[in-house]
Design a protein around this nucleic acid. Structure first.
Length: 577
RNA sequence: GGCGCGGUAGCUCAGCUGGUCAGAGCGCUCGACUCAUAAUCGAGAGGUCGGGAGUUCAAGUCUCCCCCACGCCA
């Protein structure tokens, strides 16, 4: 039994995410977690909401709520959606937790002691009306280059010219519109990532088995231009982890918080701490290699936009903190599975533009399994992939309703009408049955291989082929004909087919957990042991075992439904949730 | 403008270190079957692998140039 730590990129708190976010990290992570649990491994599957930063403050203000209250509510909403999609987190934490505050401050303190923190003085725009410093992108004004009057402090969207906030003509706060702005001197902490560049580079180079998508992005940031830059890890905000040096105050840093990208990945660790506090478990044995985590395999799932932070920034934090060599050693990630983007009818899904299908809407129109199956079987692994309603409809109808659902239906109904609702006991397996078992054994082993390798699409294709094999078998042996001359043989055929339903339920559970549960329930069994021995597994339901004909497992998506949804989701929805 | 990832059958996509690599699923056509959610099973048609040049005995598979789409950055 192996110990496997799995984290999914943590979704930002300020709204409901679209399906692209789901398929890019949480869903494949869940697939892997479920599979590894089913194989008997010890799994810790962690996710959380990423709650700090200016966008959260602004979203809260727009909702007319204090930011902590807003975040608590949104965390509940996101947690509910995660449940809706059957994401099997061991813990769904919050980056605003006390545990994360303490750990973030702890890491900062260690980095400071390791000599990797530098204080930098810089000038920043302060809004007297808003009572806060403004990040560059929250300052608007007229572009000195093209005259566009809604240029942002970091860039003019009209002419794309890179700007400094002080370049803007008639600058104003994008938050309040106030022009009562002034430039103030402020001090910030920088993490000297450049000092860690060689170690990071060696570490990345050692990961020859990582997806090209992952390493190519990391190497680009490491080597492009001037190479890896030092990074500001503090901000002049109210909402965040207060800057401290471990448990001590940090002189000169009063009233400042850590930058959201510094504390967010630390939340992976803190969320495990949250889990431990709630369950009495041992979180350090998952994260401290000096406390047992040396036997842990740590796998991260994320979209490609998150790769730089997980291949460089977070590892820099860990490597830097470990460099004290005082025995306290933290776990670095072993494997990063990254995904491209899922596009929506020819363009991007977009949270800010409200374009595409959002997670809550998806669950309103169809059960989780439909989305899980289609999204996973079309996961954007090697390149961006495309969601179209036609594809979704045909994929779901064909794979789930026709191939799998109808298999369950035809077998159980045939048995009920000819033998009653119990596994028939006459007859023995012959050549066709043994051939099927041999074929299935090979396919199940291939499926396991793809799942272990996190080859999501290939896993789905193999699973589908396993379902098809059942239909092939039925078509070949044709129990509806056999029963006329040789009822015993038909009984054996149906006995095998009923056992196939149970086998399919077990194998399919990581993809479609609800349907899998229904299948096991209709077979009236709780034995969901993984089929290490396929032949034995296909005798698990003994002669005489009672079952019941289930309801239709998957209703088909009609053309009317599809057209209806297509129209409904063609526009945009209010971006701010 | 620079960089990155792609451009393979109508659609969505596989094709690792060059030599059964021209494939899968869907769609389409034809056939079989009738237990089943008008389901299933089989067969077939469909592509000069974005364009051009080059390296090689041999190139979707390597090199160079160009075109197109997307993304990131400046």
């Amino acid at each position: 039994m192996a110990r496997i730590l799995i984290t999914s990129a943590i979704p930002y708190i300020n709204g409901i995410k679209h399906l692209g976010n789901l398929v890019g990290s949480q869903l494949p992570a869940d697939l892997y977690a479920r599979f590894m649990r089913a194989r008997g491994h010890d799994v810790m599957f962690i996710c959380a909401t990423d709650e700090h930063g200016t966008p959260a403050e602004l979203a809260a203000a727009k909702a007319g709520k204090p930011v902590d209250e807003f975040c608590a509510e949104m965390h509940k909403v996101q947690s509910g959606i995660a449940d809706g999609f059957r994401l099997s987190f061991d813990h769904f934490g919050r980056s605003s937790s006390a545990q994360n505050h303490a750990l973030t401050q702890h890491f900062a303190g260690r980095l400071n002691r390791a000599g990797l923190i530098e204080e930098v003085s810089e000038k920043q725009v302060y809004s007297n009306t808003d009572g806060r410093f403004l990040p560059d992108r929250y300052i608007e004004g007229t572009c000195p280059n093209c005259g566009y009057d809604k240029a942002r402090g970091d860039q003019c969207e009209n002419c794309t010219k890179q700007l400094d906030p002080t370049d803007l003509i008639d600058p104003r706060s994008a938050i309040s519109g106030s022009t009562d702005l002034e430039v103030r001197e402020t001090k910030h902490l920088y993490l000297k990532q450049s000092d860690l560049k060689d170690q990071l580079s060696d570490w990345i180079d050692s990961k020859s088995d990582w997806p090209i998508l992952t390493t190519s992005i990391a190497k680009k940031w490491l080597h492009d231009g001037d190479g890896l830059q030092d990074r500001g890890i503090t901000r002049d905000l109210n909402w965040g982890v207060p800057v401290k040096d471990g448990e001590k105050d940090w002189p000169g840093m009063e009233g400042k918080v850590f930058y959201v990208w510094f504390d967010a990945p630390i939340e992976y660790i803190a969320a495990t701490h949250e889990w431990a506090d709630a369950s009495g478990g041992d979180w350090q044995s998952w994260w401290r290699t000096d406390k047992g985590a040396d036997t842990v395999r740590y796998v991260q799932f994320m979209g490609k936009d998150n790769v730089p932070f997980h291949t460089l920034s977070f590892p820099a934090t860990i490597i830097g903190a470990n460099s004290l060599n005082d025995g306290e050693q933290w776990k670095l990630v072993d494997y990063i599975k990254s995904f491209n983007y899922l596009n929506y009818d020819g363009g991007q899904f977009s949270t800010s533009q409200g374009r595409g299908i959002f997670q809550d809407q998806a669950l309103e129109i169809l059960p989780a399994d439909y989305w899980r199956w289609w999204l996973l079987s079309h996961a954007p692994e090697s390149s961006d992939s495309e969601f179209t309603w036609e594809n979704f409809q045909s994929g779901v109808n064909k794979d789930l309703a026709d191939v799998l659902g109808n298999f369950v239906s035809r077998v159980t109904k045939f048995c009920r009408s000819k033998f009653g609702e119990a596994v028939p006991d006459a007859g023995a397996f012959g050549d066709a049955e043994h051939a099927l078992i041999t074929d299935l054994t090979a396919r199940v082993r291939a499926y396991e291989g793809y799942m272990e390798a996190m080859e999501v699409r290939k896993s789905a294709a193999e699973l589908r082929a396993i379902w098809v094999a059942g239909n092939e078998y039925l078509q070949t042996v044709a129990p509806w004909s056999t029963i006329k001359e040789n009822p015993d043989m038909a009984a054996a055929q149906i006995r095998l087919a009923l056992n196939l339903i149970r086998l399919y339920a077990i194998l399919s559970a990581p993809f479609i957990p609800d349907a899998s549960k229904s299948m096991l329930a209709s077979m009236k069994t709780t034995d969901d042991a993984w089929p290490d021995d396929v032949a034995a597994s296909l005798s698990a339901l003994p002669p005489g075992h009672v079952f019941e004909v289930p309801d239709v497992l998957f209703a088909k998506i009609s053309d009317e439904d599809r057209e209806d949804w297509q129209a409904r989701f063609a526009g945009t929805r209010d971006a701010a949730q």
